[in-house]
Write a protein that binds this DNA or RNA. Structure first.
Lengths: 216, 216, 216, 216
DNA sequence: CATGAATGAGCTTTCATTCAT
DNA sequence: AATGAATGAAAGCTCATTCAT
């Protein structure tokens, strides 16, 4: 699983770049953006520091590149999980399953996205925000479709759907962090917990049984 | 909202300490633990750096003190919100409302707790973990009580209740961050969204209508 | 043996000053001039820092005052030891005995004089140098007297006497440090070792039996 | 004699390291451990501070490295001076001569060993202690050999020999400092003074003529 | 393609010293 | 006679970044 190759000579650029990014994701994920040093990343990647700069220009750009790569990988995994033909709840289930599986298999990548990127200022947070919106849109679509499946006459207001999607995605993110930190929680279990928690509620809402805010 | 008082001279220690902690929470919350410099904190507090060290000893201790103070304040706010006599759903509603109100009024404190403290290593994360467990216990109690209210015969398994509490608290944390970042989302609205999302689902579960994981 | 008096109020100046100097000698002797902090000294003396400055002006002056006091005490002890009427070797013996006794009883004072004062630059070293010269003069007088006692015709050249006195005093200083650091070496034993080492040699020299430097 | 080379660029590591150590010995020897600043050392060495840290890690390690280098150099000089074949007094003479010559030629190194290293705490003092013991052992051997040469029947007790060696080495150390501080004292003269002072006395002792401690 | 050598700038921390009471 | 409150200045150390080869 180690990325280091003991300073092998003369590799093609693409390979070297991958090694560096692997090392960077690992280091950023574990240490945090500020605490990670370029020295450490270069050493872990098995290259000299100037080479890191030659290929990736600066710490900021390297971090951004890590965010982009990991965001792309996560999105692809979720998209690959959800099979378009199925009913909405099955699609959601598969999407969540893929999501928890991927975050469990790439804990450092997930730490970069969920913890570090959002913690260290505007430019990085924006990068993650874009990916998050793509996931929210995906979930929003599913909920909307399910609502329409259930009954044509009384659709859920768009604004409510959006809020629910946000809550669901937020709960998923939180559970992913929790599952990664807590030994013994499988991706399957996390997904089941979240489906149980959310789907039953969503179904209720689709049937018009919403919880009423008390007046005072 | 600024804490700086333009270098007023000779204040009693307690006052100065409060000013410093206010400045520290603001700086840590916005910049992050590593990126925040003691210089910046001292300047924002309107004192010289040595005074910060004289009163608060080190960056680590200052950060820890911030975490403790903000955690205590949040817990107190939530506890003060939930009135013991009401039915469980009303208690939860009031608790969530207090939670979202407090996090909206103290965005930097919330950032310190939710983002920074958990991102920068064991000793700090532990500090927050303790507070979080108190909140989870509170919610767990409410869900359990509600389940017992609804029907004496078929109680929810403890393990399920715990998972649901984790999911609910996670969703709340996530929504708080989202509400803080997204203009136009009020504490009331965030609380309503989460109640709708979660309570209806919980009710369903209490009635034995859980979502079934598909086999493959 | 502790100097601290737990911050008693309103003492006459002379007493307070003594407490501070005691604390300073102890701290300087154990930590060294630079490593000793005014905070530590004030605390050990049981007073506030501004009072130390009010009475003793600055760290430099405080250190100088310590050197002077300890040098004076050591000189007085040696002078009080040597009784003028006796033969030269007995006088030297008593002087050395007093010297080793005093340095053993005031290890911090001796450390200030022998180690710290000579280690930290011109102004302090000069202070000690003066006292050392007084001791060297005392010893030079004894050796000269003994030489004249032994034989009127062939006196030792002054330059040789001076060199011998330097060597003797140097050996004494070195032995004092050694005796202070090595448990089980009494003042009596140190003095006896040095008398044995030096007096027999001096006697030899007085009788014209000097060691001849080889030519090449 | 200055080590600075006016910020010459790109030297091999070994050379730079030597320059830094030279600068460090000079600075530590003159200022003392605490008063010497890494800035000053770096400037004197003609490099930037980070380079000093890159090569020598910390002030502590740099100081320790200086102690070791200077101790080694002094030991080597003394050993090279004493030729094994000669009679004991001639060996001692040559050893002392080499000792005073070396300390006169490397006053800063000698100051580091004799003054600074012993003044600033356990870890450093230990370093010097080891070297000193080697010299004491060397002298002890010479005195013992001389005693056996002089007469087979009545050997000096080991304990006395050890005490004498301590006194002799102590006197030598003290004289070296004195000679370095006093202009016009050559290494030759210092060595002659000490031989005169000590050897004649040792000879006396070997012949059983020891000085008798008076009773009271 | 790759690196050993080097640094400007900044950080946390400490300390001698003073002021206002 | 005595102190709580406060600071300017510097020190040790680290890091992102760049040359010259």
């Amino acid at each position: 699983m180690s990325t280091s190759t003991g300073r092998n000579k003369r590799m093609p650029r693409a390979v070297r770049e991958r090694q560096m990014m692997d090392a960077a994701v690992q280091t950023f994920g574990q240490r945090g953006y500020r605490a990670a040093s370029m020295d450490e990343i270069a050493e872990l990647a098995g290259v000299s520091k100037p080479l890191v700069y030659l290929y990736l220009n600066s710490k900021d750009e390297l971090f951004t590149a890590c965010i982009r790569r990991e965001a792309r990988a996560l999105l692809d995994a979720v998209r690959a999980g959800a099979e378009p033909g199925l009913p909405a709840d099955r699609q959601l289930w598969h999407g969540l399953h893929a999501f928890f599986t991927h975050t469990a298999e790439h804990p450092d990548g997930w730490a970069v996205l969920y913890r570090q990127a959002r913690t260290h200022g505007e430019p990085f947070a924006t990068e993650v925000h874009a990916m998050r919106e793509e996931i929210v849109a995906f979930v929003t679509g599913l909920i909307g479709a399910a609502a329409r499946e259930a009954h044509r006459d009384r659709a859920l207001p768009d604004r409510d759907v959006a809020g629910l999607a946000q809550a669901l995605v937020g709960a998923a993110e939180s559970l992913a962090g929790w599952a990664n930190e807590t030994p013994g929680i499988s991706a399957h279990e996390a997904a089941a917990t979240l489906m149980n928690f959310s789907w039953a509620g969503l179904e209720n809402l689709m049937n018009g049984r919403s919880w009423q805010v008390p007046s005072p």
